[in-house]
Design a protein around this nucleic acid. Sequence first.
DNA 1: TTGAAAGCGCTACCAC
DNA 2: GTGGTAGCGCTTTCAA
Lengths: 345, 345
Amino acid sequence: MANINEVAEVAGVSISTVSYALSGKRPVAPDTRRRIEAAVLELGYSPNAGARMLAGSRTQIFALTEPLRNDTHAPTHMSFVLATAIAARRNDYDILLLTDEQAQAGMSRVAANGLVDAILVLDVAPDDPRVALARQISTPTVFIGIPDDHDGLVCVDLDFEAAAARAVDVLVDAGHASIGLVGQTETAYVKSNFPPRVRASVLARAGERDADVAHGTSGIKHADRAWVRRTTGDLLAGGATALILHCSDEAHSAVLAEIESRGLRVPQDVSVISVGASFDTTALPVSVDSIPLVPQTSCDLAVELAIQALGPDRPEPGVRLIAPTYSPQGSVAPPATPSSETAAS
Amino acid sequence: MANINEVAEVAGVSISTVSYALSGKRPVAPDTRRRIEAAVLELGYSPNAGARMLAGSRTQIFALTEPLRNDTHAPTHMSFVLATAIAARRNDYDILLLTDEQAQAGMSRVAANGLVDAILVLDVAPDDPRVALARQISTPTVFIGIPDDHDGLVCVDLDFEAAAARAVDVLVDAGHASIGLVGQTETAYVKSNFPPRVRASVLARAGERDADVAHGTSGIKHADRAWVRRTTGDLLAGGATALILHCSDEAHSAVLAEIESRGLRVPQDVSVISVGASFDTTALPVSVDSIPLVPQTSCDLAVELAIQALGPDRPEPGVRLIAPTYSPQGSVAPPATPSSETAAS
DNA sequence: TTGAAAGCGCTACCAC
DNA sequence: GTGGTAGCGCTTTCAA
């Protein structure tokens, strides 16, 4: 591996000129620049990462803490890891992955040894232990998700509350007065921050709009197909004419299977809206209206904030909520049997 | 962040003694050592990562290249990423995650700038482009999986061929003469290295043992429940008295559902063996005999080889196959209707 | 527009 | 058993 001295020698300039030519932090004569670029190419030169870390003040590495617990929904979590990595690379950053117990221990470690410029936190629990860590260390930290206690933290997330409220509004506006919510696994309501937010918001908005809501989960630890079908059946039997789905890919398909097996059609007999899905709801057996959770959007913003935190004007602590978007797919219609005659008159 | 000078000052020793006390590369008097440790604790000292990289010759970072394509089975891939991270940390290494297009571009980059000591390759395709890259760079590279062209490479993997052959042997030994293989998705046979290896080995061994084999897949890109049930039905209708499953968690459960819905029992009417599963087959509706793929085993060995590659005696290039283990769960029995009377006599 | 040189914080060699 | 110090390869003043 060639170093900056060899490049300087070949190009016939000093090493500082090489450095400035490559960083662009100082104007370099066009001709000089060309000779340097030629030398770089010829030698296959690439600035040594360790030396840059030491001399410069940036490591060009972000830590990503993501426990990757095995009771989590792998595809969703993988999407976020991937989206974070993509967002980071767009800004010339690499991702150091801290999983398992290292999600916590590693955070302190890399903050202490200066391996990373900032830390991104995924899979945020309501009472996440990484909150306390983030407050102790001086390395800028951005949460993708909102812990209960987020005082002084920088957090980014989809506005799940608004998304849930919007779903209720759409259904009530269409004439539905009884709504079923097929939620996440029971574990998710304890270990994750957003399932309770969606549920609370659905209940609150339904209350405001005078609609009934019943809530069911999609399993214990993992989405359970039979469980989901039972939940769906119970909700429909309970009089729900519309369903809000806040659950996994497979759970969505189980819901649709149950609806179909009951001889019901979407949207004529049952209206369906998906909330917070990070997969393609148009690839389901029946296309479903969606207020999606787009990992790339959250992760792009998180990376942007992390980078901003390294500059002179650090971002204000606080929660940044991403406005939800509604993607209609024709899975919502007025109820077949209006719940009240007055509504139809 | 305190540096080594401050520690030396507080402890009343020279910085070299501090360095040696911490690395243990030179004997240090017990008393001196204690004073240094006290100073380290007091100052919260942690050696600067960049400085260590530059001065020492180790970065204590491995790159992990894993494309994380969205047509892959997320849970399996996540297990491997997690297992790699755990194995790495056990050896004081961190993992730099290279995904997406960075799985390739990043490999050259980190090899050139010396950010990592070695590279671990996951999700290996039969014609993986990272093979060519690995040959170009001087950074030690270990493949977890076996590309078609693996000349001169260090590869680690479960011995899928032996696992598949073993499954056939167990079934034939139990009296089965007609076996069905429920395989992976069609995409997997093109994009991954091991599905073809399992299929080929099942066919070959069945040929040697004079058993019939029929093969079906579990979907196009993603395991498709209805597809799997159809495949299963076809295999059973075709006369198979035993099934070898080399497919996802969900596909396993779909197979069992189809068997049950046909009024058949495991193992009385149908014997079942799972090959290369990295999930718990005893958690299925019916416990299934398994010759599992244990990510941690492969990843531990890969990390061990990577570390060895940094020392004086670099490992020989070549494929390291991990011997499969058979875990009986009572899902194999002699066929209900012996395929030949002679076998029963 | 360019160059010289002082570090950045360690590791490891050479002395004692 | 311990200390001094020369780098590691870069970034960034300070001078010209």
